[in-house]
Write a protein that binds this DNA or RNA. Structure first.
Lengths: 333, 333
DNA sequence: AATAAAACTTTACGCGCGTAAGTTTTATGT
DNA sequence: ACATAAAACTTACGCGCGTAAAGTTTTATT
């Protein structure tokens, strides 16, 4: 930096000022620097910059499982928004492991991020680690809520979306049973409770089919468990509401293999619905009827909320923003 | 660090030595530190560590488009391997943009990574930036090759896999046409050439259907283009080999919408095949016949090669490792 | 018990930059 | 032309840690 300052004919502190905000120096000085910049291509070291700044332009993004296209897509949108706003997003995946989530949060601390967007593991999170982290770093939770942690939460309203689907399924055929795995996060629990409530409000008995498996390989769980459930004739109804789309995708694959025709048309014997409108839900066999989570809105609002928080424009009270899901009718139910 | 050194009863340099390699200090010293560690939970600042070390434990991973499940899955495996080997992976997505790829590479430099695993944009890469980067940082390219750049390349052998598929399709029905988009990377070009070669070797005329679109939204391109091609009756044969699975997924969705039955059974009028064995290929409608790229092998070998390179155990000559694809027969062709 | 080797401590400097304080130069108004 | 404020300069220190050099203590060897 010293060298480059000499080359451009300004002092190092002025150069530092320029990189922090090009408009903060005189026009003549600015052009001197930018001319030298063209010839020598110098760039300040991002991680040294942050060494001594109170607030950096780094934004941490932590998701529980990046190989899940839902999170991949959300992460993509969030990264773009951050970049466009002049921030530097750094993306981490917990790979479904508490230990990794903890390590990521601890490392994130030393990055001195301006803020962090965290989709926690949920049930699998280490509450005290997350709590401590949220105290130290401006954090907005999304997708998966942990009561009281973070400055805000942005997600979707399972108690609106699940009843919506239950209503639709009941109106158009047999009432659904709920297919779920061991819940990995609060959403799964909420969806189960919302399902129960919705059924009971209709005077119907809820049926819950629990598949083995406690990791994030939902397709496999849905497939393996689906085979077992079908073979053992354990399906209480001819309508199956899956706790999420990935589970539904795996389950429908099992149906296909067992020769069960899935769909709402008359020649089909089973209806399957999902939740989330997973990026590949419209390409499944048959295309999956599901609840669309508003990806764009959740991403946008999360980022906006974080920016507000970073700029200090957020009141002390923790806000929870829930977006409504929309019914997406396709061929499967 | 000073404080914590005092707390554990050792000097700061010794503490530094411990964190660099816990085995490099005497057992008694080590336990002193680790006892203090339990009570006070101190962690060195990763990005300050790298400030003054010749070699860090950081490994950069750069993929062109992380919302593509293929890359999401490969990134997942690579991250795991790095973590298990005691490295600290940092993941970046270029979002299909040259400008971002350049920025990522330049920022990566200041991270002083021990090595970088780079799946370049390919055609969209800025050759001189990548070249300069590879000179400065130990880099292994994967998935998409750029002649001469990086210390090694690991990918799959399109000139083996595509002919394999062509052979299968010819043997079991009408010879295929090739459905492609504007090629975003070298693989697309290689696949086209491999297709041409394979057809010509059989004395057949190659037919190439090019769809509009030059970004990474292959499903959309396959769907929109598919609708157009089908409406205009521009399909030269009843067998379509898609340049990659995502394209095939979109295309099949268009077929479904147009009421065209896809599959190899007698009541179907169109066969569709893909390439890659995308994580969702087996869940499509109908399940997609495709070529399985050996995800695991590519990830493993990339990481292994990089580790060798980092440890200096690699000769000067640039190596190219190509894995063979395997035919995965499903219902679509 | 003597000796060498290993491990530790103290001291000091450096990484690439931010930033504050005090001083000098430059642009603006009159 | 001079006064004044804004901008730039010089100087100095700090971030959190790595690391080299020199001296001191501990451990292993004979």
């Amino acid at each position: 930096m010293e060298e480059f300052a000499a080359l451009s004919g300004v002092s190092r502190p002025t150069l530092s000022k320029y990189f922090n905000d090009p408009n903060s120096v005189r026009q003549s000085t600015r052009s001197k620097i930018e001319m030298a910049l063209e010839r020598h291509d110098y760039r300040p070291n991002i991680f040294a910059i942050n060494q001594n700044r109170k607030m950096t332009k780094n934004i941490g993004i932590v998701v529980p499982f990046l190989a899940d296209p839902f999170f991949a897509e959300i992460a993509r949108v969030i990264e773009r928004r951050c970049i466009d706003a002049g921030f530097w997003p750094i993306l981490f995946s917990s790979h479904g492991e508490q230990k990794l989530e903890n390590e990521i949060l601890n490392s994130l601390r030393s990055l001195k991020p301006a803020g962090v967007l965290l989709a926690p593991l949920g049930r699998g999170s280490d509450h005290s680690t997350v709590e401590q982290f949220c105290r130290d770093v401006p954090t907005v939770l999304f997708d998966s809520n942990i009561e009281g942690l973070g400055a805000a939460f942005v997600g979707s309203d399972n108690f609106q979306s699940v009843p919506l689907m239950v209503e639709y399924l009941c109106r158009t055929g047999e009432p659904p049973c709920l297919l779920e795995t061991q819940p990995v996060n609060p959403n799964a629990n909420k969806r189960r409770n919302a399902y129960k409530q919705a059924m009971e409000q209709r005077g119907l008995e809820p049926h819950i089919v629990r598949l083995d498996g406690s990791d994030w390989n939902f397709e496999d769980i849905g497939y393996d468990g689906g085979l077992r459930v079908i073979r053992n004739q354990k399906l209480p109804t001819n309508t199956v509401l899956c706790s999420n789309d990935r589970l539904a995708i795996g389950f429908m694959s099992a149906c296909l293999e067992m020769g069960i025709r899935v769909g709402r048309s008359s020649e089909c014997s089973l209806r399957v619905a999902g939740h989330d409108d997973h990026p590949f839900a419209k390409f499944t066999c048959p295309p999956l009827t599901t609840i669309a989570q508003d990806y764009a809105a959740i991403s946008e609002r999360s980022v906006e909320t974080l920016f507000l928080l970073v700029e200090g424009g957020l009141s002390g009270t923790r806000s929870e923003t829930l977006f409504e899901g929309k019914l997406v009718m396709r061929a499967s139910a």
